[in-house]
Write a protein that binds this DNA or RNA. Structure first.
Lengths: 163, 163
DNA sequence: TATATTTGCGTAATCAATTACGTAACTAAT
DNA sequence: ATTAGTTACGTAATTGATTACGCAAATATA
């Protein structure tokens, strides 16, 4: 992705973010394997969330993780198969199925913590090497679009041109 | 993805990059639709590349775009169906199938250019709003990992802890 | 209380991209 | 000139996530 694309600059922010994200996620997967832990990066958000929140319904999780609810069901299915997560029907609301970490899931935590510490440390090295901090940049983008969405900004730009 | 995750910082660089990338890509798709142009963001890299390079083989493209060659074949199939891309067997190397923009594909370019200009402009606004430039941050990350991969850095960190 | 609407969940179909594998054409080495 | 190895491409299977759809429970409304 050099030469031709170097001049594109802002036009391909999306693709470049995706490429870097894929790269990091893949490296993360490698790392779990190298440590002999049968854990996949995609499980992290759900697992981590449950490790902090005791019990949560499918939709609550989907919202907190900002993914679709079928994705949550799928991830939960995998973690249940591993025996790390169990579910119970809610007594207050019969529609809800509550997820939580099983004992086995909780007992795995310390081992994962160590790995997460390592990942965090290397990521910190990345960030510290930067004169321009990627996390800060992301933070700023999130705030920027929270105040007004990309699509809205597009519309406004269109209108401003017409004048 | 607030509260629980806010303290994670560097641990979830990957997920956050992905989330932002997804967001921008989706907005891009919306924009094409709103302009009544039947073009998908995923086609952009291949289309744009061909608009600059005349003729290219599948593998050349895969390398330049940093995607797998089946992905190129798939994208090409779609663009061929649209009538924007044609292919010919290479005379120098009978294994190669060369892709290029068709006349129809070329004639679409000016219209797309206008849209790309708009996208570029709004993205520029994003970047200019930032005290910390996301493109610069990405650039730095790319350089950082080009000199030594994430996995290598992981290994080194592991070793340094043992001492 | 009956009815309409919303909410929570599950399944199915679809999508975009990958890995794995096979085949044919080219290249290098003997 | 054979053989071995590499390269280019295509297909199939898999992955990870989404949207679309439907059902049942809860909530709001008449």
């Amino acid at each position: 992705m050099q030469d031709v694309f170097s001049k594109l600059g802002p036009l391909i922010i999306g693709s470049r973010l995706k490429r870097m994200s894929d790269y990091i996620m893949r490296a993360g997967a490698e790392f779990y394997t190298s440590k002999g832990v049968d854990f996949e990066p995609k499980w992290f958000p759900l697992y981590y969330l449950l490790s902090h929140e005791k019990e949560l319904g499918i939709m609550d999780i989907a919202q907190k993780l900002n993914i679709s609810h079928p994705a949550v069901i799928q991830l939960a299915k995998e973690l249940e198969k591993k025996g790390w997560v169990t579910s119970t029907k809610s007594k207050e609301d019969a529609r809800k199925r509550l997820l939580k970490l099983s004992k086995k899931g909780i007992s795995l935590l310390p081992q994962l913590q160590l790995i997460w510490d390592d990942i965090r440390e290397v990521n910190r090295q990345v960030v510290e090497s930067q004169s321009t901090n990627v996390l800060k940049a992301l933070e700023e983008m999130e705030v920027f679009f929270a105040s007004k969405s990309y699509t809205e900004r597009m519309k406004e730009f269109q209108d401003s041109k017409k004048k």
